[in-house]
Simulated assay, not measured.
Amino acid sequence: MAFLKEAEPERGAALPVLPGVSRIVADNPSLMTYHGTNTYLIEGDGGFVVLDPGPDDAGHLEDILRATGGAVSAILLSHTHSDHLGATAGLKARTGAKTYAFHLSADDAFTPDVLLRDGDSAVGMTALHTPGHASDHLCFAFRDGILFSADHVMSWSSSIVSPPGGDMADYFRSLQLVMERGDRLYLPGHGPPLPDPIPYVGELLDYRLKRENEIAAALADGPSGTWPLVDRLYSKTDPWLRRAAERNVLAHLLKLQAEGRARVTGETWSAT
């Protein structure tokens, strides 16, 4: 896959993305988050909509408040992973803005003020339930064929699908859903904007299907655990990346099991 890269962004700054839209890239770089989480600031008549406040970091919260002048009218969450949710409570406390998120939160400690379901309108956008990376993941359809794709589709990397919150069958269906929409630009939760995203989403689907077929072929050769499958199918050596690969392998195996193509005894998987 041809992923997009970008230079490390200016820290603490509201970087223009589109007319009326900017992003602050949180200072939480890692192998899983690239340069950091994109916190989007969307201008509106009643103030700014903040999409994904980012990690629980006092400096990042102050950056958001400075860029918006504290005029935050709503807080939207794509999903409740900590690198997106962390600053939400602090931003709500400082601004009084209501929080909007999927009605079935994957974080027992968080309940949004406004419960969103698939297709609901939210401050001028449409919420699309796109589980796969996370059970409560939402993308937000904006104006003019623009989709805030969060961690469902990112330009710099494919997404990890880690059970139990991640589900590979859901991920396949959600990729198909956004591909059929035909949007012209994705604004992801990490990394740079993704223009002409539909062929890219098709590549993601093909890549996942190829990996699934490789796993099925490996099981046809004999029973295996997840880590031997990682060793067979991946070349990653970094411990974090190997762990991410193992979670993806498990997600594929659970999908194969649900389809009657694999079974598990203890921690050993085999073809049916």
Rank of each mutant, 00 (worst) to 15 (best):
residue 201 V to W: 00
residue 64 I to H: 04
residue 188 P to F: 03
residue 4 L to P: 01
residue 75 I to L: 12
residue 61 L to N: 11
residue 80 T to W: 03
residue 134 A to H: 14
residue 92 K to E: 12
residue 86 G to K: 00
residue 266 G to F: 08
residue 198 I to M: 10
residue 187 L to V: 07
residue 234 Y to G: 04
residue 223 P to F: 06
residue 226 T to L: 13
residue 191 G to M: 02
residue 42 I to W: 05
residue 266 G to N: 07
residue 126 T to A: 07
residue 166 G to S: 10
residue 148 F to Y: 12
residue 178 V to P: 05
residue 161 V to I: 14
residue 212 E to T: 14
residue 226 T to A: 07
residue 31 L to Q: 11
residue 192 P to Y: 06
residue 183 D to Y: 14
residue 80 T to Q: 11
residue 50 V to E: 11
residue 197 P to G: 10
residue 31 L to G: 08
residue 229 L to V: 08
residue 30 S to H: 09
residue 148 F to W: 07
residue 5 K to C: 01
residue 70 G to W: 08
residue 225 G to Q: 06
residue 85 L to W: 08
residue 50 V to M: 05
residue 182 G to P: 05
residue 70 G to A: 05
residue 75 I to M: 05
residue 55 P to C: 06
residue 208 R to H: 10
residue 171 Y to P: 02
residue 109 A to N: 09
residue 237 T to N: 12
residue 106 A to I: 00
residue 255 K to H: 12
residue 227 W to G: 02
residue 90 G to I: 03
residue 229 L to P: 09
residue 36 G to F: 04
residue 29 P to I: 10
residue 246 E to I: 04
residue 271 A to F: 09
residue 155 S to I: 00
residue 223 P to S: 09
residue 178 V to L: 15
residue 42 I to T: 11
residue 137 H to E: 15
residue 24 I to V: 07
residue 177 L to F: 15
residue 51 L to V: 01
residue 227 W to R: 06
residue 39 T to L: 02
residue 210 K to A: 13
residue 254 L to T: 01
residue 204 L to V: 13
residue 216 A to D: 03
residue 114 V to R: 14
residue 82 S to H: 13
residue 161 V to F: 00
residue 228 P to C: 12
residue 236 K to Y: 09
residue 188 P to A: 03
residue 150 A to T: 06
residue 145 G to C: 10
residue 252 H to T: 15
residue 172 F to L: 13
residue 269 W to C: 02
residue 88 T to N: 00
residue 240 W to Y: 03
residue 7 A to M: 08
residue 61 L to Q: 10
residue 48 F to C: 06
residue 46 G to A: 14
residue 245 A to Q: 12
residue 142 F to V: 02
residue 262 A to T: 07
residue 177 L to W: 10
residue 72 V to P: 04
residue 56 D to C: 11
residue 128 L to N: 05
residue 33 T to H: 14
residue 33 T to Y: 00
residue 239 P to A: 12
residue 100 Y to S: 12
residue 152 H to T: 15
residue 189 G to H: 02
residue 82 S to N: 06
residue 54 G to W: 07
residue 167 D to G: 01
residue 42 I to Y: 06
residue 24 I to D: 05
residue 84 H to M: 09
residue 112 P to T: 04
residue 29 P to G: 09
residue 107 D to C: 03
residue 213 N to P: 00
residue 253 L to N: 06
residue 131 P to Y: 07
residue 121 S to V: 03
residue 222 G to K: 11
residue 62 E to P: 02
residue 21 V to C: 00
residue 7 A to R: 11
residue 57 D to S: 07
residue 250 L to W: 01
residue 78 S to Y: 00
residue 45 D to Y: 00
residue 174 S to I: 07
residue 221 D to Q: 15
residue 161 V to M: 03
residue 158 S to R: 09
residue 149 S to R: 05
residue 41 L to V: 11
residue 189 G to D: 05
residue 147 L to R: 06
residue 137 H to I: 01
residue 260 G to W: 06
residue 18 L to P: 05
residue 211 R to G: 12
residue 108 D to W: 08
residue 45 D to W: 02
residue 51 L to E: 02
